[in-house]
């Protein structure tokens, strides 16, 4: 298994009039092998989507990114290189399928524009699109191609989105909350479809979600992000059954279900910090029951068993 994506110490600053106003990413380390799925889990404002945007090289001009992104056989790639890889070797699926398609073009027209980047003959594109739509379970592909986005359901649109993502046979698929806007049963079908397609085509996947159980279902490896940093990562089964970082533990304890006693979910006090400009030491310290003086310096990522954890209170 070869590494498709490796991100080391990715940091992002937001500037206004030349000064840094926020540092929403402060140390993202991830690595995905071909055919593998890495799940990034975290709460709103922790930097999940920003990580994806930054890997795609699509940050707004007011942002500055640092760190090393290595991609497949290209080695280290710059933001400019990313522009070439987008839509050819990297594809992305977005959260809300209803707004991800342009409302005034047919699905066919939009898929066509993406397919044209592959520089193949027109009638071959038609064949390719039909085949792609069939492969995502849309059996009346011809009708779908001729439909406008508002004529299709959210589930169907998300399937179209997946078909669009796979037109280019990418090496890496980034899925940013692909099921959040869908009903549970439809979302489940979409997840199963993505997984099946992944096994069929062997692409690597970066799966981003706030939903721990979705990440647990889909990913081989997971990374928990908090306040712009990876605080724990490792094989999914391992992290889920043996969480180390207090934040990971809290997150897993907060998932409601029938088996947990009512009214006794683990509730992490406080909120995710809104600005990360002046954070000193561990950013979780002010919500953490274990925090003490040791936590005033930023803890490094340390290997503990199969996982990597950034917490001064966790020892191997």
């Amino acid at each position: 298994m070869s590494t498709v994506l490796k991100v080391s110490n990715l940091e992002v600053d937001f500037l206004a009039q030349g000064t840094v106003v926020n540092t929403p990413l402060r140390g993202i380390y991830i690595e995905i092998a071909s055919g593998q799925t890495l799940g990034i889990v975290g709460e709103t404002g922790c930097g999940k989507t920003l990580t994806a945007t930054s890997i795609m090289g699509l940050l707004p001009s007011s942002a500055v990114q640092r760190g090393i992104i290595e991609f497949a056989e290209h080695g280290q790639v710059s933001v400019a290189d990313m522009a070439e890889l987008r839509g050819s070797e990297i594809s992305m699926i977005f959260q809300n399928p209803q707004s991800a398609f342009n409302p005034i073009f047919t699905i066919g027209a939009q898929l066509h524009m993406v397919a044209q980047r592959r520089k193949i003959a027109r009638d071959e594109i038609d064949q390719l699109l039909l085949a792609r739509l069939h492969s995502v379970g849309l059996n009346d592909a011809t009708r779908v191609l001729n439909s406008y986005p508002h004529e299709l359901s959210g589930g169907m649109l998300q399937r179209c989105m997946i078909a669009m993502a796979l037109i280019a046979t990418p090496k890496l698929l980034i899925a940013d909350e692909p099921t959040t806007a869908l009903d549970a049963t439809i979302g489940h079908q979409v997840l199963a479809l993505i997984r099946t397609l992944q096994q069929r085509e062997g692409f690597a996947m970066l799966f981003i979600s706030h939903d721990v159980s979705a990440v647990a279902k889909v990913s081989d490896v997971m990374a928990v992000v908090y306040a712009g940093r990876v605080v724990e990562s490792g094989p999914t089964a391992h992290v889920m059954s043996n969480p180390q970082h207090p934040y990971t533990k809290g997150l897993l304890g907060a998932i409601p279900n029938a088996k947990k006693p009512r009214g006794q979910l683990v509730a992490i006090a406080g909120n995710v910090p809104s600005s990360l400009k002046d954070v000193v030491g561990c950013s979780f310290a002010d919500r953490c029951a274990l925090a003490d003086a040791q936590c005033s310096t930023e803890p490094p990522l340390v290997h503990i068993g199969e996982a990597v954890v950034a917490c001064a209170k966790v020892r191997a």
């Binding site: 997150l251 907060a254 979910l265």
Partner: peptide, 11 residues
Amino acid sequence: LDLSVQAQILN
């Protein structure tokens, strides 16, 4: 709401 906040409210 986010998961950790959801837990607070449910409690």
